[in-house]
């Protein structure tokens, strides 16, 4: 829905909802509630939110990774709705068109398999020959700045540091030449200096390959340094979506505004941090109306009664009654 400046959308998500079944209960728990967004070819988009906001579930839904999750809506990827594909067709998309990296690289590496074999495996599954697969694995590892990559193809994951493991996992994701990379908090577990290197790397690769990136994070600093566009999620909905410069300069949603003011800064002394009162609601205890209303200092009657729609506001999309009133 958000018009990208230059290119046609690579992914277009319409009315996506994700329900997780509850043990014993018939009704699922709605984790993601009717969200729309799109990502253009080569675009770097950050999806920010706190725990329970549904950001990771959204990312996994695009890959259809949770077999028990009930997905509804549409996820158009280059004109095909991913939700209508069979599991077998979906497997074809995973890795070759859409790839994903996660917070904990170790859980995605087989400790008993060499790095070279693991990176090449994505290609081997697609019927590419041993020699060719190895060659391409090597070139990707090289591209990702793994020193002496040729020598290290025979190494095992435990011989690598955390940052290097994350590079290997990135190589596994990128060797199939995907068009979209979904990165779910890939730098959260890393030390700042390593995080910085990995972000630089992602930045380079994305620019060089024209790779679109959906970057899931809770860290606004990472968003500001990496993304072109930011989508803010709260309690299962996208509450603000806009150009990263515009959102940081003039956040439209009170939640976004509060979040930005709540982050301590390395580059300035702040007298007092702004603290949003309360805590994000659990998915089973969402308040009526706007889910943010109990924590919002600007809330009025309508906020407590009616869920705000996502509406265009000066080049952004915002779900807040404050802006609806001004617009009307």
């Amino acid at each position: 829905m958000f018009p990208s400046k230059t290119q046609k959308p690579l992914v277009e998500v319409r009315g996506l909802s994700v329900d997780m079944p509850l043990a014993g209960g018939k009704d699922g728990l709605r984790i993601v509630d009717n969200i729309d967004f799109s990502i253009a070819v080569g675009e770097r988009v950050a999806l920010v939110g706190e725990s329970g906001s549904g950001k990771s579930v959204t990312a996994r839904a695009v890959m259809r990774l949770d077999p028990v999750a009930r997905l509804s809506g549409k996820i158009d990827f280059e004109g095909r709705d991913l939700l209508t594909l069979s599991e077998k067709e979906m497997r074809h998309y995973r890795g070759s068109s859409i790839a994903m990296v996660f917070q904990d690289p170790m859980s995605f590496l087989d400790p008993l398999m060499t790095i070279g074999d693991q990176v090449a495996e994505t290609l081997r599954i697609r019927g590419i020959g041993r020699v060719e697969a190895r060659k391409r694995a090597l070139s990707v590892l090289d591209e990702l700045g793994v020193d002496r990559a040729a020598e290290r193809l025979g190494s095992y994951p435990h011989e690598f540091s955390g940052g290097m493991r994350q590079r290997v996992v990135l190589a596994m994701a990128l060797v199939g030449e995907p068009k979209l990379l979904i990165a779910d908090e890939p730098t959260t577990a890393l030390d700042v200096r390593v995080q910085d290197q990995v972000l630089d790397l992602l930045d380079d690769v994305s620019t060089r390959r024209g790779l679109a990136v959906l970057f899931i994070t809770h860290d606004l600093g990472v968003v500001a340094g990496f993304a072109e566009r930011v989508m803010v999620m709260y309690s299962g909905r996208i509450v603000e979506d806009g150009d990263v410069h515009a959102v940081f300069k003039d956040p439209k949603h009170p939640y976004t505004r509060g979040l930005i003011r709540a982050v301590p800064r390395i580059d300035q002394d702040l007298e007092e941090l702004y603290a949003i009162p309360g805590a994000p609601p659990a998915p089973m205890a969402r308040p009526a109306g706007c889910p943010f209303n109990p924590r919002c200092s600007d809330a009025f009657d309508r906020c407590r009664a009616e869920l705000p729609a996502v509406l265009p506001v000066t080049g952004e999309r915002v779900a807040c009654h404050l802006h609806d009133r001004k617009g009307a």
């Binding site: 700042v192 200096r193 600093g221 990472v222 500001a224 340094g225 990263v244 940081f248 982050v263 580059d267």
Partner: peptide, 14 residues
Amino acid sequence: ALLAAVPVPDPEIG
């Protein structure tokens, strides 16, 4: 190096 690596929540600076 440590200070330089800390992300700043400001796109211009970042």
